[in-house]
Design a binder for these strands. Sequence first.
DNA 1: CAATTCTTGACCGCATTTGTCGGGAATAGT
DNA 2: ACTATTCCCGACAAATGCGGTCAAGAATTG
Lengths: 176, 176
Amino acid sequence: MELTTKGRYAVMALADLAANGRADRSVPIADIAGRQGLSQSYLEQLFARLRRAGLVRAVRGPGGGYRLARDPGAISVSAVVAAVDEEIRVTACQKGDALGCQGRSSRCITHDLWAELTVHIDQFLTSITLADIVADAVRGRAAAMAAGPSSVQGDSGRCVTAGRLRAHGMGGVHAT
Amino acid sequence: MELTTKGRYAVMALADLAANGRADRSVPIADIAGRQGLSQSYLEQLFARLRRAGLVRAVRGPGGGYRLARDPGAISVSAVVAAVDEEIRVTACQKGDALGCQGRSSRCITHDLWAELTVHIDQFLTSITLADIVADAVRGRAAAMAAGPSSVQGDSGRCVTAGRLRAHGMGGVHAT
DNA sequence: CAATTCTTGACCGCATTTGTCGGGAATAGT
DNA sequence: ACTATTCCCGACAAATGCGGTCAAGAATTG
């Protein structure tokens, strides 16, 4: 798994764009870089990819800049990260082997684990949009999903049975 | 976030240990490295950390090796990864700044997002133990949690309302 | 004492990430 | 047309740290 600053920066930039731009107003990269404290040249590279992925549209010339291609509520964090973090490295488990895990017979014991983790993470990132970030509606979201996804929406159909979630202190996975 | 091969290898090794060893039998690193196709010297480093974290106990001399310190069902993947993937880099968002995100006033927009993601991932990794891996009881686990954690255990208290999960194709987050 | 096996620390090459730089191409205003 | 603005693109540089090796040493068994 590989989620680097590229992904973080991209989300920050698009969230900024969602907050400080409208459908009619373009925001220049320099402004975003300034507000978010990021390198302008670096951001340019990221926006190039975001554009190729169809998430933003560019307007050149004076008064130009970028604007979101869709509604902020229709752009998931998952999509943003995917646009920027290219290589879908389904890394072979046994690196000497060309087919690796896919090789059916010698599928390594932890294969399912990482596959499931990928799904789990993607479910989360897909469930959050730029609109959510701008609206500051993200805190507590993980707990909400764990309690049952229905509670994320409103709170019909409660479903709180604890299940088997050992406590244990979160370690090994780092963010921010 | 940073989940590298170190974490993968560690889990593979401990799962192997859970499968091929008992409370009375020690398994030498060489055996594990051989079965899992990993570098022995590299594994040694990982086991050093696993031991310091209290997850395994070492027995030296001929007939020695490693054995799990606890029951396989009492060791979560989260614990393993945490033991091996050291640096708790709560990386400052604005790298020039010493306090970064914590600095209350200038907390960057995406702070909550990554914090929640960390929680979300950890919930998953904490819910899975070595015993689960050995028993091959991991497939479909993410979907199960999304449907409501209660369904992971058995299937009392169903709770299936879809919630807001846009489809979208998983991208950007890679595993093996 | 000799064979195992863990224990530790130093070391290194390489790929990837994280940028920088400079020039070029569209566009708007004058 | 000229100029200022802004996106666009490719090459290049630096740093980080991952993945892995090597060698020496300390327990333990027989």
